[in-house]
């Protein structure tokens, strides 16, 4: 059993990613959120490295996945680099065992990558043919699209929804997730 630590901006994000990865790897992986109840900006503060070190030493995960939202498109190099710098700093604390997932804009980009599953769950008929790498504010997009429907999208639905999203469709349509997943399987030395 490989133990994987999770650090993210929101429990919805970490649980959603866990649920998505468990779809593809239902056995052999054990996940634990290492730092709870911290939002994105709170992950930047000075106490985090010390807290992470304590949790890492105690749980002893093989690897730790760090999930951050870019809140911008891939063209915002400065923002992306800032997140990479944050990751590099924390990665030192955990002996370089970190794997970084930067969601382009937000986690919801992955939902747009498999809009058919979303439509099924929300009884909607949203058509989405764009490249998710270039979608600004995907969360707001989904909220607006379901504003007048019986079931409105809420980010708290993500953990359940991510149990049903089609993994292979997401890999095909969300380049940033494909890149992360390739890195994930090669680092963990597991089969795709």
């Amino acid at each position: 059993m490989k133990k994987i630590g999770l650090i993210g901006e929101d429990p919805n994000d970490t649980t959603s990613l866990k649920n998505l990865l468990l779809q593809k790897h239902p056995s052999g992986l054990q996940f634990k959120q290492l730092i709870k109840n911290k939002k994105g900006y709170q992950l930047d503060n000075a106490k985090i490295p010390s807290a992470l070190k304590i949790e890492y030493d105690e749980y002893k995960p093989q690897h730790v996945i760090f999930i951050r939202d870019a809140d911008s498109l891939p063209t915002n190099i400065i923002k992306i680099q800032k997140i990479k710098d944050w990751f590099n700093k924390l990665n030192e604390v955990i002996d370089g065992k970190g794997i970084l997932l930067i969601n382009i804009y937000e986690l919801e980009a992955l939902i747009l990558a498999d809009i058919d599953t979303f439509n099924l769950h929300y009884n909607t008929t949203i058509r989405y043919a764009k490249n998710v790498m270039y979608q600004q504010k995907p969360k707001e997009f989904l909220i607006q699209k379901t504003w007048k429907t019986k079931k409105r999208y809420s980010e708290s639905h993500c953990p359940d929804l991510f149990m049903h999203l089609k993994f292979d469709t997401i890999i095909k349509k969300a380049a940033f997730f494909n890149e992360f997943y390739s890195h994930f399987v090669s680092t963990l030395k597991i089969k795709k």
Binding site: Y41, Q42, D44, N45, A46, K47
Partner: peptide
Amino acid sequence: QKYMAEVGD
């Protein structure tokens, strides 16, 4: 903002 970034919450 300085407290949030440098000290904690």
